[in-house]
């Protein structure tokens, strides 16, 4: 947006305003080509930094709202993990999708944020959970959410509509979390018998690697067993998560529309 306009402006100014052209001769940027290169360099610098920064914000958000549900393999149950996680993860992509699409026509917000989050999550799990607390990395490795974000961004790229992105993209964002993570989770759903009880490999790891006062939520919800097996509950949860994510998307896009106005910037300056 600003790049082509400003190139045109600088061309016009160089013809019309001689005093400004003197200034531009003093500057390191004197041609449209140089200006274009500076814009590109700025993008290459800004996008990774913004991704990691926004990813860090999402790490805090997920820690506060999803927390243990995504920290441990045995907490990724069939009822709450596929519901809580996409609803919470939708917040930052929805806000920044409004900003990036409305002002820059860039369908990259969700994917960049989720990439940043995944980098930050892997660093956190490896440094904190594995090196510091000494849990096996397989037991604490993060789930993968990048596919959900790519779907969300693809929908706005194809439809160019916030309404349709919410209706189709946000719904799929909530629905596909379980199938996208199924290949990684499948091995942990292997049924085992321990002390005469049937448990999943994830349940057994949770039993053996002791965590103080955990994992009580899931045991209370499921009344005595963890049940990380999928079964019929999972698709129902996925559809419910999809509907909730649609509502959450519209809410946070609306909040994004209120936040992404120049009034806040002028107040700061």
């Amino acid at each position: 947006m600003g790049y082509t306009d400003s190139v045109k402006d600088s061309d016009n100014q160089s013809h019309e305003d001689t005093s400004r052209s003197d200034v531009s001769q003093d500057s390191a940027i004197s041609t449209p080509e140089q200006q274009r290169r500076i814009f590109r360099a700025f993008d290459w610098m800004l996008v990774p930094v913004a991704s990691i920064l926004l990813g860090g914000i999402v790490v805090f958000l997920v820690a506060l709202t999803v927390g243990d549900w995504d920290y441990w393999q045995d907490w990724r149950d069939r009822r709450w993990w596929p519901l809580v996680t996409p609803v919470s993860l939708m917040v930052a992509p929805a806000v920044f999708t409004y900003f990036f699409w409305k002002y820059f026509r860039l369908p990259i917000a969700a994917t960049s944020i989720m990439m940043g989050y995944m980098i930050a999550a892997w660093v956190s799990r490896y440094a904190n959970f594995h090196l510091f607390a000494d849990f096996p990395m397989a037991f604490v490795s993060p789930s993968n959410f990048i596919g959900m974000a790519i779907i969300l961004d693809s929908v706005i790229l194809l439809t160019r509509s916030f309404y349709l992105q919410g209706f189709i993209g946000a719904f799929l964002f909530g629905v596909v979390i379980y199938p996208l993570n199924w290949p990684a989770a499948a091995a942990f759903h292997t049924p085992l018998v321990w002390d005469g009880y049937i448990v999943t490999a994830a349940d057994l790891m949770g039993f053996m690697y002791i965590r103080t006062a955990m994992p009580e939520y899931v045991r209370i919800i499921e009344e005595s067993t963890l049940r990380t097996f999928g079964e019929a509950v999972t698709p129902l949860t996925a559809f419910f998560a999809g509907f909730l994510t649609i509502l959450n998307y519209y809410l946070w896009v609306w909040i994004g529309s209120k936040l992404a106005v120049s009034r806040w910037a002028t107040k700061l300056i």
Binding site: A133, F135, F207, Y209, I210, M214, R219, I220
Partner: peptide, 16 residues
Amino acid sequence: VASFMNIGVPGPAFLR
């Protein structure tokens, strides 16, 4: 209602 026999150790220093 629902109780689980747990044990407190400093991290997984012991396997149950």
